[in-house]
């Protein structure tokens, strides 16, 4: 029970954000209208993905210094779960874009960057598949993971800011915070972010433990 409090917290927060996200008052803005509620689902997916990839890189570095097989397993399961959240982020974003920007894939730097980042981690999975020997696979994929991460950060956080983008916070557009994320929305948005991050870590954790059982039996 003492160990599991964060899982209960995650479930409560998600449940709260879904109910409150659909029922609470939201500001009426032109173009966005009710679709602004997607903020509670679309943005947390990306935050979760980044957190999972970050944990994965930390464990890849740990693997390189320790050579402990468990660290490699954690790194790969974090990436596996992160890719799922990346796809969910793309899908929720495409639905949103279809209603507000007129097409599911407008030529927007942030969309393209997100797609490329997803490709990068799928390449990581392919690289793992191409080697049979466990230690070699763990070491080489850890090296690629550490190598790709800084480039992904540039891709997601620096490049979109240098060009015009439809997303808030890019190309001179102010971020959501400064004008339209009012305090009412914050009450739902922040719990949603924390809840989804915890759920992501939980899923990855379960996958890791399943793998551990498979290996030991």
């Amino acid at each position: 029970m003492q160990k599991n409090w964060w899982k209960i917290l995650a479930s409560v927060l998600i449940l709260y954000s879904v109910i409150a996200g659909f029922l609470f008052e939201v500001p009426r803005l032109p173009i966005l209208h009710e679709s602004i509620r997607n903020l509670y689902f679309h943005v947390p997916m990306w935050f979760t993905m980044i957190v999972l990839y970050l944990i994965s890189v930390i464990y890849s570095i740990k693997y390189l210094s320790s050579g402990d097989e468990k660290h490699d397993l954690i790194a790969v399961e974090m990436v596996n779960t992160g890719i799922v959240f990346g796809f969910l982020g793309l899908v929720t974003g495409m639905i949103w874009a279809n209603f507000t920007w007129g097409s599911p894939w407008p030529n927007d730097p942030k969309l393209n960057s997100a797609a490329i980042a997803t490709l990068m981690y799928m390449a990581y999975i392919v690289l793992r598949g191409s080697m049979d020997e466990e230690q070699k696979r763990a070491k080489i994929s850890a090296v690629y993971n550490v190598f790709a991460f800084p480039v992904m950060l540039v891709l997601l956080f620096i490049l979109p800011r240098m060009t015009d983008s439809l997303h808030p916070g890019n190309g001179g557009n102010p971020g959501f915070n400064s004008y339209d994320l009012d305090s009412q929305m914050r009450l739902v948005f922040y719990p949603a972010v924390i809840g989804w991050i915890l759920i992501g870590v939980w899923i990855a954790n379960m996958r890791y433990r399943t793998r551990l059982i498979e290996i030991n039996s």
């Binding site: 960057s113 490329i116 980042a117 490709l119 990068m120 390449a123 392919v126 690289l127 191409s130 080697m131 070699k136 080489i140 090296v143 690629y144 190598f147 790709a148 480039v151 540039v154 891709l155 490049l159």
Partner: peptide, 29 residues
């Protein structure tokens, strides 16, 4: 560095393209 990663795996020339394209795209842009 990617060519040295790819050289460790089998089928290295196909892997080279898969691994390097996503990493080079930001620089290419």
């Amino acid at each position: 560095l990617i060519s040295s990663i790819a050289s460790k795996a089998s089928n290295s020339s196909a892997l080279m393209a898969i691994l390097s394209f996503p990493v080079i795209i930001p620089l290419l842009i």
